[in-house]
Structure formats: C-alpha cells, structure tokens
C-alpha cells in the first residue's frame, strides 16, 4: 500500500511537471512570444516598414 502510494505521488508529480512545462512552453520559451512582447526589438526590426498604398489612389473606399 505504502509502495503504490509513493508511485502515485511520483506519477502525479510527473504529470503536473509535464503540464506546467507544456503551458510554460507556449508562453515563456516560445520565440514568438519572446519577440512579440519586446517593443524595442520590434521597433528596431520593423522601422521603415510602413504600409504602402498606390500614390494613384484617391477618394473614399
């Protein structure tokens, strides 16, 4: 009984750790999130990339 209880705790801890790790992966270690939360870096990387529209366009759409 004592042995199976210990095994249960180990399995539960493993599941919890796995669950936490997968959640953390989405938010903390994803390069997408890392970069897209960094305003300064985005500013450096995207400066000058203004949206363009034809100079010939006129009037309301």
């Amino acid at each position: 009984m004592k042995g199976s209880s210990g095994l249960f705790v180990v399995v539960l801890a493993g599941l919890l750790a796995g669950g936490l790790a997968s959640t953390a992966w989405a938010t903390d270690t994803s390069s997408c999130v890392t970069c897209h939360l960094d305003k300064e870096m985005l500013t450096r990387n995207l400066s000058g990339t203004t949206a363009r529209k034809s100079a010939m366009q006129s009037g309301q759409g």
Binding site: K53, S54, M56, S58, G59, Q60, G61
Partner: peptide, 16 residues
C-alpha cells in the same frame, strides 16, 4: 480601378 507602374492596385473615386 487599375494598377500603377509598380503593380500596386488602386481605385479612384471621381466625385463625392
């Protein structure tokens, strides 16, 4: 409507 010399699409409304 048309495309300019750079191939960009545009529209022109002549009057509102």
């Amino acid at each position: 409507v048309g495309k300019d010399s750079e191939g960009m699409a545009f529209f022109q409304n002549s009057r509102e």
